[in-house]
Design a protein around this nucleic acid. Structure first.
Lengths: 254, 254
DNA sequence: ACACAGTGTTTGCCATTGTCAAACCGGCGC
DNA sequence: GCGCCGGTTTGACAATGGCAAACACTGTGT
């Protein structure tokens, strides 16, 4: 979980780890944070107070613990507003939602996980800001598989290096080789399919967004509870993904 | 700008400062960051690389500089989803948008500024996630003045301690005493008015959200380019603010 | 082709700074 | 009352981050 770069600034690194920890475990006390993260209590105290001074974390209303602070919002808004993949995709997400009547999602890789950048929950009333920031495992959501399918086996291997393919449902692919062959099929097919592999009763299809150098930089997909509707819409998703990819291509790099 | 707490973790603090700097000045190189922030280049390098390792900042697509990374999104999403003021207010923001036909905003204090938590840009199609994360000066937006008006003169003085009331338009109140008397008027009136004090051609009114201990914890307001429409809707804004305040009151604290 | 300017990156030394153990304080429950 | 738990402070030690310098690389202008 902690991205240990060699010769990194230890204190900064620990502070950021605390921020992540607090995000995932809201309401914990300093003592609890310290013991869970194997940091000395007084050290944790100082780091927490520093983060608090910058408004990155704050005390919970009851004053008993800590949670993510308001200070993270301005950077996040900046990131969202400047994100080229997101900007290029949003208009098409709306049309896709109209065309398919299903939930639509846009995701990219963050570390070894899929990060949702935008989503439309209720196709009836488009609200593209909803549901950003959630992360999902790469190996069992269609967005993740769509992206992985466009990477070499080596790259995939490296990405999954120190991850276990955790099981979420009976259909979750937990075997590396099985995943790799699924990715091959995905590549041939042109889109990824999630057959209740992450959440029971939810099917998804997704297609990758490619940049000018044929690298996957994200994926769009739809999800819903009616299998045939989802599968039948795969071509639509795929063609929209190609349109967005072309839009992204003229840009210099990434 | 840097919130200097005594005995804080210096390295962590500097790292967070860099994050903020990068957010406000996207695309800057490490050398530029270092010189602007008076940090040694190699130190800046290490801090930047550490932040990058945690995905809090990333290289710009052209590889020449740095910008805010994807890693800030999960914490921000958590903060937004858990924010009680925001949760309580959102439904009413929508109705307010319908009733007035104007842009609607929700804001709270962050440090000495107003932070927008939610906003509806186009009343016709409600999209409450839009425009969060933007910050505005307290002294010249209605949200800020609505909140300040419910604080004691001492508290206001302390809040504005080391801030200059910067001028944005001809109408901006840049004098502390003038601001204080405006706040008194605001308190009597029950809502704050921004008469083109921040942006020419834009009028706003706002009313404070109060908790059970009669402390201002935020404000809602509307803004638009037609003065009389805005002013005439002030009572509506005020009454909605009271409703939300009552909703917030049962909660334990803050 | 050359030198130069600007940036990224690495190294090694020094002392600042963060770490840690211990103790103190304060509230809460037994 | 006592003990437990969390927060906070202190002080000594040494690990760690700060800094200067040097190197590699790229692009630019002469």
């Amino acid at each position: 979980m902690p991205v240990a770069e060699k010769s990194a600034a230890l204190t900064l690194s620990k502070g950021l780890d605390i921020l992540k920890y607090v995000q995932e475990h809201p309401g914990r006390t300093i003592a609890k944070i310290a013991s869970d993260m194997d940091i000395n209590r007084s050290t944790a105290h100082r780091l927490v107070k520093t983060l608090e001074g910058h408004y990155f974390i704050q005390q919970t209303p009851d004053g008993r613990g800590y949670e993510v602070g308001l200070g993270v919002l301005p950077p996040a808004a900046t990131q969202l507003d400047h994100n080229p993949v997101r900007i290029a995709s949003i208009p098409y997400l709306n049309t896709l939602a109209q065309d398919t009547g299903q939930r639509v999602n846009l995701g990219v890789l963050l570390g070894g996980d899929v990060l949702y950048l935008a989503g439309i929950e209720k196709p009836s009333l488009p609200n593209v800001y909803s549901r950003f920031g959630k992360v999902a495992p790469v190996h069992c959501c269609s967005l993740g598989k769509a992206i992985l399918a466009m990477m070499s086996a080596d790259e995939v291997g490296e990405l999954l290096q120190n991850k276990t393919l955790e099981r979420y449902t009976d259909n979750t692919i937990t075997d590396r080789d099985a995943l790799l062959s699924d990715l091959t099929a995905t590549r041939r097919r042109g889109f990824a399919v999630d057959e209740e592999e992450h959440i029971d009763g939810t099917w998804c299809v997704a297609a990758p967004l490619m940049n000018s150098r044929s690298r996957p930089i994200g994926a769009i997909g739809i999800s819903g509870s009616d299998r045939s509707t989802i599968i039948d819409s795969a071509e639509k998703v795929s063609s929209v993904a190609k349109v967005i990819s072309h839009l992204l291509s003229p840009n210099v790099a990434l």
